[in-house]
Design a protein around this nucleic acid. Structure first.
Lengths: 148, 148
DNA sequence: GACGGTATGTCAGGCTACTGACATGGCCCC
DNA sequence: GGGGCCATGTCAGTAGCCTGACATACCGTC
């Protein structure tokens, strides 16, 4: 069914390959997180909180690459399930610092283990030099894209 | 506001950086495509059709990393706007080969130019060796993740 | 020819994330 | 103190994409 390829080959486009890799990573993460009753965004939120306790709603949103509105509803759900806690009123300004509960920490531990295995698999075909090169390359892309 | 970082640093996680780069690329693409009345998925669909004329709905969906249901509604919209054409009935089986119209080709040309400029900016901080290394690395990640 | 397996196009429903908007609180400068 | 400016938390409405399901058409083996 695949017709003969004309014009530019998608397989040599950095943008397309980046999207393809990101999509594959997301699929792989969803696959291992689903049995644990987790989604990628929920995991990202918990992981952020574990590494940077006390993050606010807006900061979590930026870290998970979603809007603060989306993170807001997600945080309410996580709070209702007892995975995170937020003070009833802001200690300073309007910012509500969020923290993991012991239950949240346990749930995260399982999810984090599964995600780490996916990441190991993703890097399995790369040498150590390539792995560090990958970090440099991706960082360079991010800063270049952010620069307006 | 940023608290002292504890535990693993997100900036050294390949998965997080990959997501960050992909997110930055998508934002940059949306920014340049919006003035042209285009979205990333619409552009991806048109670009695929330009490079591989006659692709079916399902093939386009796989190429754009969405489900065939999503691509179906997108194709109807593009067809209603006169950017693509599909035969009324399948020449063989149920597969409806899609093709760009002259109008679709013109719209794509403008969008493609804008996207290429974004990609050039994304790669501006990389040497030629790093650019080819990036392709190899991303391809390796994709195949490793796809392997169950 | 009959059959199970696979792939396709399409319909219906639901969920997630988004944009738009508002009120509030911190910060800086005059 | 007053006023512009920005960031934050939140509410409402919308759009995009997804899962589930169905009928149909190809392809392999028997």
């Amino acid at each position: 069914m695949a017709p003969d390829r004309v014009g530019v080959d998608l397989e040599t486009s950095h943008g397309y390959l980046l999207k393809e890799a990101s999509s594959a990573l997301r699929s792989a993460m969803e696959e291992v997180l689903a049995p644990l009753g987790m989604t990628v965004t929920r995991y990202s939120c918990l992981e952020l909180l574990a590494q940077r306790p006390g993050l606010s709603n807006s900061e979590l949103a930026r870290g998970a690459f979603v809007t603060r509105q989306s993170m807001n509803v997600l945080l309410r759900a996580l709070e209702a399930e007892g995975l995170v806690t937020r003070p009833a009123e802001a200690p300073v300004g309007k910012v509500l610092p969020t923290r993991l509960t012991p239950l949240g920490r346990r749930r995260l531990a399982r999810a984090s283990k599964a995600v780490r295995e996916v990441e190991v698999r993703m890097l399995s075909g790369l040498t150590n030099a390539e792995r560090t090169a990958a970090l440099d390359i991706l960082r360079s892309m991010v800063t270049a894209l952010r620069a307006d």
